[in-house]
Simulated assay, not measured.
Amino acid sequence: MTGRNYFLAALLALLFGFAGAALWSLSGLGDRQVRGYLLDHPEVLAEMADAYQAKQASERLSAVAGEVAEPFPGAVLGNPEGSVTLVEFTDYGCTYCRMSKPEVDRLVADNPDLRVVIREWPIFRGSEEAARMALAAAQQGKFAAFHDAMFALGPPDAASIEKAARAAGLDLAAAREFASSETATREIAKTMRLAETLGFTGTPSWVVGGKVIEGAVGYDGLDAAIGDARGS
C-alpha cells in the first residue's frame, strides 16, 4: 500500500472504523476514487477531524475524570448531592464566563439533580486574587454568595473583590489569611494542571459526563450535554 493509501486508510478508519478501512484496502478501490469522493464531500474531512478531536479529549478526560469532578470543599452550585455533574473552569475576569453565568443559574433552576463544580482557573490579569477569595468563601460555606457578587461587581480588582467579600458576609480577616495559604495555592495549581491535561485554551470550559466542551456554548448546548450525561 502506498503512503497515500495508508493515509486514506487512516482517514477511513476514523470515519468508518478499522473494519471499513480494511474492506477499502481489500476492495482495490483506488486513490482516484477516494480522492474524488473527498473532493465532492469536503465536509467529511471536517466531521472526521471533529470526531478525532473528540476522541482525543475523551481519552485525556479518562485519565483525570475523578479529580476534575471532585470539588474544592464548598465550591459547588446547585444540588451538592446531584446525580449529574457539570464542571466549569471559570475566571472572574472573563467576559464570556460572566455572560455564561445566567445560563448556569438557569440550568441549576431547571435541573434539580444538577451539581455544578466550579474550578477556579485565573488566567486573566488580576483574577488570581478573586479566585483565592472565592476559595476562602467556599471554606466559609459562602461560595455561591461570593461567586454571584463577584460577577455582578465587574472585573476583579482590590475594591471589587473586597465589596464581593463583604456582600457575601465573609469573615474578612480569616478569608484573607486563607486566600494567601498554601492550600489555596495548591488548589489553583491543581486546576491549572487539569486544564492543561484536558487541552483547554481558555475560559469558560466545561466537563459533563464524558464530554469536554470549550467556550460559551450557551444554555442549549450545555442542557443537551447534561441530558446526554443523565441518559448515559
Rank of each mutant, 00 (worst) to 15 (best):
Q53M: 12
D40H: 06
A51P: 05
L77Q: 04
M99H: 15
S58F: 10
L39K: 12
P80D: 00
E67F: 04
K55D: 07
A51M: 10
A49M: 05
G78F: 00
S83E: 00
L61W: 08
E70H: 06
Q53V: 02
R98E: 15
V87D: 00
D40Y: 01
P102T: 14
P71I: 00
V64M: 05
M99E: 14
P102Q: 06
H41R: 09
T85H: 01
R98A: 15
A46P: 00
R98N: 15
G36V: 03
A69V: 13
A57R: 04
A63F: 02
S58E: 13
K101F: 14
G66S: 13
D91G: 12
E47F: 10
A75R: 04
L45C: 04
E47K: 04
A57I: 01
V44L: 05
A63H: 04
E47W: 08
G82N: 10
S100I: 14
N79D: 11
E43Q: 04
Y96F: 15
Y37N: 11
G36N: 08
R60W: 12
D91W: 07
L39N: 09
N79C: 04
E59C: 04
A63I: 06
L38S: 08
A63Y: 01
E67I: 03
F72P: 09
E88Y: 10
E103A: 14
G93R: 02
K55E: 12
M48T: 07
A65W: 01
E59A: 07
T95A: 14
A49Q: 06
Y96P: 05
D50Q: 09
V68I: 15
G66W: 01
P71N: 08
S62P: 02
Y96M: 15
E67T: 10
A46G: 02
H41L: 03
T85S: 08
T90R: 08
F72V: 02
F89D: 13
D91K: 07
P42F: 05
M48Y: 09
L61G: 08
V44S: 03
T95G: 14
A57Q: 10
A65D: 15
T90P: 02
K101P: 10
V76G: 09
D40W: 02
P80K: 02
P42L: 07
A49F: 02
A57N: 07
E47M: 07
Y37G: 04
V64D: 09
P102D: 14
E67M: 08
Y96K: 15
Q56T: 07
H41K: 01
E59N: 03
C94I: 13
S100A: 15
L77E: 00
Y52P: 05
C94K: 11
M99F: 14
E59R: 10
E43D: 09
L45W: 04
V84E: 00
A57P: 06
P73Y: 00
A69I: 08
L45Y: 08
A65C: 11
L61Y: 08
T95P: 13
P102E: 05
A54W: 04
L77I: 09
T95N: 15
A49G: 05
Y37D: 12
L61Q: 11
G93Y: 01
E70C: 09
T95Y: 14
P102M: 06
E70L: 10
G66T: 13
E103D: 15
D91P: 07
